[in-house]
Each structure stands twice: as structure tokens, then as C-alpha cells.
């Protein structure tokens, strides 16, 4: 069970810095074509910002913002986006993850459709990596017990 820091300096700095870290993570995901980065790296930074909140504010406080059930839903949602785009390409008479076929659906030239398709894949990968990072951190820190059980034990 992770308790909060009883220290106002660390808590305040973490609370102020977290939105900027998350905006930078979104920049890394969105700008992955032109600079280093992409889905995995941006997802790891996004997960690190949530881990920073868990460390400084404690499990009980952060659980009001993001629950374990929500993390499980997010980790499935990313895989659904990835495979959904891939299957959509098969439905449009192409191969799996053949983004050029998306041009019929979106009414744009195939080059732009490829760029947008890769962006969608990166978003799916980022969401999954973030959720799995936070889930691994929570499982290690609570010793494998679910958060709802933990609360019953301490009472």
C-alpha cells in the first residue's frame, strides 16, 4: 500500500508538473512521423506521469481519478483500435493493415490515408502501453491483491 508523501513541496511540484508531462507525451505520440518517438515512447511517458501521481499522492487519493477497472478497459481499448483498423482494411478488400485502402472510406488520396492510418495505430499502441505500465506498477506495489480487497483488509 503506497501512502502519500506528507510533504507539501513534493506534492505541489508533482501536481503542477503532471499536465505538462502529459501534453509532452501527446506531442511525442502525434509527432512520431517526423521526430524520435511514436506509440511506445509516448505511452511510456504517459504512464510515467500517472506513476508520478501514484507515488506522490498515494493510492487512495489517485484512485478517485483513475480506477483499476478503467485501466483494464483502456488496455483493451488500445488493442481494439489497432485490430479494428487492421480489420477495416480487410473489409475494404486489402491486406491486414493495408492503410492505402482507407482512402475509399475517407475520400482522400492514398498517401494521406496511409499517414492517418499509421497515426491511428500509434494512438492505439500508446493507450495500451500506458495502461499496461500502470497496471504492472499497481500489481507490484500492492503485492498482487486487487485494490478493492486491500481496502477491506486494512479496515
Amino acid at each position: 500500500m503506497i501512502r502519500a508523501y506528507d510533504d507539501i513541496i513534493v506534492k505541489t511540484i508533482a501536481r503542477i508538473l503532471t499536465p505538462f508531462i502529459q501534453i509532452f507525451a501527446l506531442y511525442v505520440i502525434m509527432h512520431g512521423h517526423h521526430s524520435p518517438g511514436g506509440g511506445f515512447q509516448g505511452g511510456v511517458i504517459l504512464g510515467a506521469s500517472l506513476i508520478l501521481l501514484f507515488i506522490t499522492h498515494g493510492l487512495k487519493e489517485t484512485k478517485k481519478r483513475i480506477t483499476e477497472k478503467g485501466i483494464a478497459v483502456l488496455s483493451s481499448l488500445g488493442v481494439l483500435i489497432y485490430s479494428g483498423i487492421g480489420l477495416l482494411c480487410i473489409i475494404l478488400l486489402g491486406n491486414y493493415l493495408d492503410y492505402g485502402k482507407l482512402s475509399k472510406l475517407l475520400h482522400i488520396v492514398p498517401a494521406e490515408a496511409r499517414s492517418l492510418g499509421i497515426l491511428g495505430i500509434e494512438i492505439g499502441v500508446g493507450i495500451t502501453v500506458m495502461a499496461v505500465m500502470v497496471s504492472i506498477f499497481l500489481n507490484i506495489s500492492t503485492g498482487g491483491t486487487l485494490l478493492e480487497d486491500e481496502e477491506d483488509n486494512t479496515r
Binding site: F24, V28, P36, A48, L52, I55
Partner: peptide, 21 residues
């Protein structure tokens, strides 16, 4: 440098979180 600047920003970030943890 426009490539390495992102890497160094992430390095500073992870160094901070690692020390706090």
C-alpha cells in the same frame, strides 16, 4: 539537434521520477 532534444527532455523527466521513487 532537433532529434536529440526530445531524447534529452525525456531523460531529464525520467531522472526526476526515478530519484523521487
Amino acid at each position: 539537434i532537433e532529434m536529440f532534444i526530445d531524447i534529452s527532455l525525456v531523460y531529464a523527466l525520467l531522472n526526476f521520477i526515478c530519484t523521487l521513487a
